[in-house]
């Protein structure tokens, strides 16, 4: 009888684990996976992404970082951030601490709308609240404002909160499912490359580990020649695997950013970043 009970318990435990989302346990396993892959690499170093794995790319990057290519974007972003809206308010009025040093707290779950709000989306919400049109979420002025706000948060530890409520956990779980689900004609998931093969090369490009990948966004990509937000990269990744990209403000991308950033809790913000 007791043996049967134990067996029942053993069967029930995994089912319960699969049913109830547990961000803290997921994070421990996620970070543990990378520690197992690269025992020598300190957690905080993951924010340097591909530069941990290629000496030549790292040397070039360090030279580039003497005069970071995103410098112009940060200056432009600061000018935009400091400018007044027609109603006299500014971006600072929409954020805690006047918008300075807060990027580590995004994305957030908004219980009112039941949706995840990323920092770029929060910037657009601020504009709408003050009667201004939304900006493009992928690049341009919004990416520059994002770059400035992230720059003021550099070194702050990422602290994405997933409230213990049903809708917030559902959004988190949807992002997790997106990250691990294979899609597109080429049949890749985000995890296929950035979790299973970080540090390996696809042609000449080094794959960045998923851990800490969000910490450097927005990034100046030499390939783009300007700044791009995380969503711009999601769209690029989807196209690479021949999957039709979602809309920049889609729930799919919001949830994915929510899950992905939450996995890097505790790592320092290193953005804006520069990538090849």
């Amino acid at each position: 009888m007791r043996r049967w009970l134990l067996l029942l318990l053993a069967l029930a435990a995994p089912v319960a684990a699969a049913a109830a989302p547990n961000p803290a346990a997921d994070r421990a396993a996620f970070q543990g996976w990378f520690r197992h892959l690269f025992p020598q690499l300190p957690l905080a170093k993951y924010v340097d992404g591909p530069y941990n794995f290629s000496a030549s790319e790292r040397a070039q990057w360090q030279q580039i970082m003497e005069l970071p290519p995103y410098g112009f974007a940060v200056d432009h972003g600061k000018a935009l951030f400091d400018a007044r809206f027609p109603d006299g308010a500014g971006y600072a009025s929409c954020f805690p601490h006047g918008g300075i040093g807060i990027a580590q707290d995004y994305p957030q779950f908004d219980p009112k709308t039941g949706r995840v709000v990323t920092l770029p989306i929060a910037i657009n919400r601020c504009r709408v609240a003050h009667g201004l049109p939304k900006l493009k979420l992928t690049t341009g002025d919004l990416a520059d404002i994002d770059a400035y706000m992230v720059r003021t948060s550099r070194g702050h530890k990422i602290d994405v909160v997933v409230p213990d409520t049903k809708p917030a956990l559902a959004a988190y779980e949807a992002g997790k499912e997106y990250f691990y689900s294979r899609r597109g004609q080429l049949n890749f998931s985000c995890a296929s490359c950035h979790l299973q093969y970080p540090g390996h090369r696809v042609r000449g490009d080094t794959l960045a580990p998923a851990l800490g990948i969000t910490a450097s966004f927005p990034i100046y990509r030499s390939k783009w020649g300007n700044m791009g937000t995380l969503v711009r990269r999601f769209i690029g990744c989807n196209k690479n695997i021949r999957s039709a990209p979602d809309k920049p403000d889609s729930l799919a991308y919001r949830d994915l950013e929510y899950f992905l950033t939450a996995m890097s809790n505790g790592l320092p913000i290193a953005g804006p970043g520069a990538r090849p």
Partner: peptide, 16 residues
């Protein structure tokens, strides 16, 4: 194929 495999005659192969 060169994106992930070393193949004779292919420049800058991947190593997955």
């Amino acid at each position: 194929c060169i994106a992930c495999h070393v193949i004779p005659g292919g420049a800058q192969p991947g190593n997955i």
